[in-house]
């Protein structure tokens, strides 16, 4: 499962590159160029999504997602507002129900692989007035390992302190979380994911509303994670930094527009398909399906 993912693009030179170059389809249709996928055995990929469709309140927000994430890469998930970026992560983590599809982490369902997965939710998702310190929040990343009913011990707190140190927040361990700046709060969330010592990380807009220093610190940390062979999927919306930050991209707008190495897929054409041509017809149809209650 530690197959180096250089394989992703072995065929990159074979024109024309299908935008879904890293998808699991061995040969989508007769005559199509044979493209390599994220892993030789997609079932061993850090994240493998097959035929996922998600609907909120009967309105489909993600259509037919097929994706295999390559191992040991920083992967940016980009797309316009309402493209379903966060939804994709939430569906993978089982936080929103899928209308159809299958998700596996290193070949097994997520529910069996929770230990291997770290999650950084959006910062707005919690009440920062909550009476806990930064250290307490980071320790929450260890709760699952500590197990039911057992208390947090000194050993766990030390581990949490170490994680805080890694994000440069050791001095703030005992501060109540509302008295941290936005960037510092984000780093606390990051430390909570770090302390889990996972293999795959999902981060939902970690750069949203943080100061430049934090953004640098976060990206340095992500690169460190990658050096350690971890796979990191990041929901991101700043197109300017995409090329410098990420090895791989997943361009999303209700469906996968393109996926693959940043250099390959970060093209005007793909961006236009992602952001430009709003699929008004498809939106209309989705709307009609929601209204009439047609289920897939």
């Amino acid at each position: 499962m530690n197959k180096p993912s250089a394989a992703t693009t072995t065929n990159a030179s074979a024109a024309p590159v299908h935008p879904r170059a890293s998808l699991a389809e061995p040969a989508p249709w007769p005559g199509a160029p044979k493209v390599a996928t994220g892993a030789e055995h997609p079932e061993d990929a850090p994240l493998s999504i097959h035929d996922m469709t998600v609907a909120y309140d009967r309105k489909p927000v993600l259509w037919d997602i097929d994706y295999n994430a390559p191992q040991g890469k920083l992967i940016g998930i980009i797309g316009p507002n309402g493209a379903g970026k966060s939804t994709l992560i939430k569906a993978v983590l089982g936080l929103v129900p899928m209308a159809s599809g299958k998700v596996s982490i290193f070949g097994k369902p997520y529910s069996k692989q929770r230990r291997l997965v770290g999650y950084v939710p959006q910062r707005e998702s919690v009440d920062w007035d909550f009476p806990v310190s930064a250290l307490d929040v980071v320790a929450m990343g260890l709760y699952r390992r500590i197990g039911w009913c057992l208390p947090v011990t000194r050993r766990h707190r030390n581990a949490a302190r170490e994680a805080l140190d890694r994000v440069g927040m050791a001095d703030y361990a005992d501060r109540q979380i509302s008295r941290l700046s936005g960037g510092q709060q984000q780093r606390v969330f990051l430390a909570r994911a770090l302390v889990q010592d996972a293999l795959v990380y999902f981060m939902d807009e970690p750069f949203a509303g943080v100061d430049a220093a934090t953004e640098q610190a976060i990206i340095a940390l992500l690169q460190e994670l990658r050096r350690g062979g971890k796979t990191v999927l990041v929901v991101h919306h700043d197109l300017q930094t995409v090329e410098t930050y990420f090895d791989e991209l997943l361009l999303l707008n209700m469906r996968i527009v393109a996926a693959g190495e940043t250099g390959e897929v970060f093209t005007q054409e793909n961006l236009h398909k992602t952001y430009g041509g709003r699929l008004t017809l498809l939106d209309q149809a989705a709307e009609a399906m929601a209204r009439k209650g047609v289920r897939r």
Binding site: Y119, P121, V126
Partner: peptide, 8 residues
């Protein structure tokens, strides 16, 4: 504190 995280 954090229902989505607890769920994940």
């Amino acid at each position: 504190f954090d229902v989505p995280y607890a769920g994940s």
